[in-house]
Design a protein around this nucleic acid. Structure first.
Lengths: 114, 114
DNA sequence: GTAATATGCAACCTAGAGGTTGCGTATCAT
DNA sequence: ATGATACGCAACCTCTAGGTTGCATATTAC
């Protein structure tokens, strides 16, 4: 399978795991920190949270599994960085939903008017 | 509302339950059916699914709890209809994330160039 | 070299998600 | 009036998400 086809399948199918990955306050705040552009180590991401390092690690692995973040081990640190593609994918999906809805409203409107 | 307050709401409000509600294939397909504009009864939504009526009902209640669908009981039927507001809310949130990311890329670019 | 730091791995616990079945009750059709 | 339809409620089951603790290991600092 070509890389292009693989990516198409990834983006067209399996959107719910990406939504599920964002369905947690802790992970949303991790995304909020990482989408600023800087990579952060696990320790850095743990500071300021009341959760344990291992809990944060688990959340990061969930985000990593769906591609929202990437992990790069450098020395004794595991630095995580944001990857926008999966989130772009679900943005497209939500655009599709809104489009469907707007289309339905438009049809309703023209039905009422005629 | 000022731009600052709006952004604070975008970042601070609890949007994870909406993401979590979409983090399931069954519920995503329910949303796909309902965002077409027509309301459907539970029985209608159950047909074509291999799940039981009660399972579908539970999923609909999850969507209802976060406001993605509304329930209107008419006669012996419970008809569900789509409500776009929560999904618009998380679209805004994802726009915010993308905006942060693009801003970070822009700063990186100008840093490299200078 | 040794201590501190950063992380991985594994076991464990608990609450809740997601599913089923059974049964009771409105409502509609005939 | 009666049977079929549409649904709600509740009990139950299983699996996993989210959290903890403990310990081992690799890297860095002094």
């Amino acid at each position: 399978m070509s890389r292009r086809n693989r990516n198409q399948i990834v983006t067209r199918q399996h959107r719910s795991p990406v939504f599920a990955a964002l369905g947690d306050e802790t992970r949303l705040s991790l995304v909020a920190k990482l989408c600023g552009g800087q990579s952060h180590s696990i320790s850095q991401l743990t500071k300021g949270s009341r959760l344990s390092r291992q809990a944060i690690t688990k959340h990061l692995r969930v985000l990593q599994r769906v591609g929202i973040v990437r992990c790069i081990r450098t020395g004794r640190e595991s630095r995580f960085e944001f990857n926008p593609q999966p989130i772009e994918g679900i943005r497209e999906y939500l655009d599709f939903v809104s489009q469907q809805w707007d289309g339905a409203l438009g049809r309703l409107k023209s039905f009422v008017e005629n």
